[in-house]
């Protein structure tokens, strides 16, 4: 007869079971959503066979098309601007002697992470309402600026981490070898911080693409993005078309986050 399981210092009874349950809870709802996006029937609880019909339905839906277009236009612009701004700010806040105003700059950069999104959203609604009245401009730029602002901290974090992990002596060596500050930046700093910039921009893209609350409050009529379009639809009768759109968005996020994960691993 086998002896009882050997005593392990690390093991606590029941913890592994809860952990597995926890991972199941994290993934089961999403998985079910994905599976039912391929359901042939319109029911969301009864499986009636495999089909792509809801994907093609979503593809042909003009509302979805325009929301997708808006989402991409905003996310591409916002992540680009946020990455450039965050890269500059990271260069200006890392690897330097502490200077006056540095704490204030950190607070500003992290503000979008600390203030509840709903608060920022209504504050932006108020401000942009005034500007809209004054300038009569109703375009997507409001959304792009708002998204740029809250994407900055997400782009900033990986870039800053990358810079802080970089050996200061490398730039000192470049200067020692007759590189002017600009050439040292172009030839040494920038290539070395590139994985951080890439990760930062992708993170910003995902964050912008997924945003619901701020977009919902800032958008003018007809400026729905995919998430706000979905939020509106959830109040009506839900068709599996929603599942199809969700699945596509999920796949985009998972792919991008995986790439970031791999980028970070190759660094170490």
């Amino acid at each position: 007869m086998l002896p009882k399981k050997r005593f392990s210092v690390r093991r606590l009874p029941g913890f592994a079971v809860i952990a597995i349950a926890c991972f199941t809870l994290l993934y089961a709802p999403i998985m079910i959503l994905v599976v039912y996006s391929f359901n042939a029937g319109s029911s969301i609880a009864v499986w009636e066979g495999f089909s792509w019909q809801w994907y093609s339905a979503a593809w042909d839906n003009e509302m979805v098309q325009s929301a997708t277009f808006n989402s991409l236009v905003i996310a591409i612009q916002a992540s680009l601007y946020a990455t450039v701004l965050a890269t500059m700010a990271a260069l200006g806040t890392t690897r330097t002697k502490p200077y006056r105003g540095q704490t204030a700059i950190y607070t500003m950069i992290n503000q979008p992470l600390m203030v509840p999104e709903i608060v920022t959203a209504v504050a932006l609604l108020i401000c942009f309402a005034v500007i809209k009245q004054l300038t009569d401009y109703q375009g997507l730029m409001y959304l792009v600026i708002a998204h740029t602002a809250f994407c900055i901290p997400f782009a900033y974090l990986p870039i800053r981490a990358r810079l802080e992990g970089m050996d200061r002596a490398l730039e000192t060596a470049a200067a020692d070898l007759y590189a002017t500050p600009w050439r040292s930046f172009r030839q040494v700093t920038l290539p070395l911080m590139w994985p951080g910039i890439l990760a930062g921009s992708m993170l910003a893209f995902v964050i912008s693409l997924d945003d619901v609350v701020i977009t919902e409050f800032v958008k003018s009529a007809g400026q729905d993005t995919l998430p706000t379009y979905m939020l509106g639809q959830l109040r009506r009768v839900i068709t599996p078309e929603m599942h199809a759109i969700s699945t596509v968005l999920l796949v985009v996020s998972v792919v991008i986050v995986s790439v970031i994960f791999i980028l970070n691993r190759s660094k170490n």
């Binding site: 601007y81 450039v84 701004l85 965050a86 500059m88 700010a89 260069l91 200006g92 806040t93 330097t96 002697k97 200077y99 105003g101 700059i105 500003m108 950069i109 503000q111 979008p112 203030v115 608060v119 920022t120 209504v122 504050a123 932006l124 108020i126 401000c127 005034v130 600026i145 708002a146 740029t148 602002a149 809250f150 900055i152 900033y156």
Partner: peptide, 28 residues
């Protein structure tokens, strides 16, 4: 030179954040 460089690098981000994050809170 260093502090001027730092401030210049941070300014664009600060402007956007002020315009679309901190400033609106004050207006609110």
């Amino acid at each position: 030179r260093e502090s001027r460089r730092n401030i210049l690098l941070c300014t664009p981000a600060m402007i956007v954040l002020f315009f679309a994050a901190s400033g609106p809170l004050l207006v609110m």
